[in-house]
């Protein structure tokens, strides 16, 4: 999956307009980055990449790039 598709998946998940996320975007600047986003991210990664990420891993994420790196 290419980078743009991954960004689009995250934008869909966070209810953001297409093209609004960049890899350098800091997660804490996103209004919708909350506990619901965390469980949505676990579901998304499980569904598309067949791996389970933990709550502890999510707490360590600072930027969109950190998420992109586990989307393999």
């Amino acid at each position: 999956m290419d980078l743009q598709t991954k960004l689009n998946l995250l934008e869909d998940m966070l209810d953001l307009d297409q093209g609004s996320l960049e890899v350098t975007t800091e997660l804490e600047t996103l209004a919708d980055w909350d506990s619901v986003a965390a469980i949505s991210l676990i579901a998304l990664v499980d569904e598309h990449f067949d791996k389970i990420i933990t709550g502890a891993m999510i707490k360590e994420f600072k930027t969109v790039q950190d998420i992109i790196e586990i989307m393999e």
Binding site: A38, I39, A43, D46, I52, I53, T54, G55, A56
Partner: peptide, 12 residues
């Protein structure tokens, strides 16, 4: 409730 931990546990 640690929602993310519980969610991960459940779907695993």
């Amino acid at each position: 409730m640690d929602g993310a931990e519980v969610f991960g546990f459940t779907i695993t």
